[in-house]
């Protein structure tokens, strides 16, 4: 009888534990970050840098607005492909580093060049379903560099 009673107690304790696994997702470890997270953050930052340059010098609006919009479209599309909201604490596109207000173009060129190389690298190793999007982003950044020449 004692053994049977002990079994009941153990069984009773096991049920809430199972319930915890099933329903309390808060105890799970977060999934590993998507490999496209850095590229999505970079796209948002590039959009913000171009917008900051336009704000500092409205004469740059004509050439830079389509580029800023393209980066924003890339960020949105990458976010959609990643399929998760922006990780908490992540920057939502605040420019990092101070752009030279006198001439922001050399800094933007350097950022586009680095961005193009990062997107090309991501495209090279991406699964098939992401390759076309990443290829378009790499090619777009190369054309931005051409515009900023």
């Amino acid at each position: 009888m004692l053994r049977a009673g002990a079994l009941v107690v153990v069984g009773g304790a096991a049920v809430p534990l199972t319930g915890c696994d099933l329903f309390d997702r808060g105890d799970d470890k977060p999934p590993p970050p998507d490999p496209l997270e850095p590229l999505a953050a970079e796209a948002a930052e590039l959009a913000a840098r171009h917008r900051a340059a336009i704000a500092a010098d409205p004469a740059l609006a004509d050439p830079l607005t389509p580029i800023a919009d393209a980066h924003q479209a890339h960020a949105d599309e990458l976010r959609r492909v990643i399929g998760r909201p922006l990780p908490s604490g992540a920057s939502s596109g605040t420019p990092s580093g101070d752009a030279d207000p006198a001439d922001p173009l050399p800094g933007l060129r350097e950022a586009e060049r680095a961005g193009r190389d990062n997107a090309a690298k991501a495209c090279a190793t991406a699964p098939a379903e992401r390759a076309a999007l990443l290829g378009s982003i790499a090619a777009a950044r190369a054309t931005h560099l051409e515009v900023l020449k």
Binding site: P66, D69, A70, A73, A132, G135, S136, A140, T143
Partner: peptide, 11 residues
């Protein structure tokens, strides 16, 4: 012609 670029070349 402007703009000089498209957001997603080849799409």
């Amino acid at each position: 012609v402007t703009p000089l670029t498209v957001p997603f070349p080849g799409r």
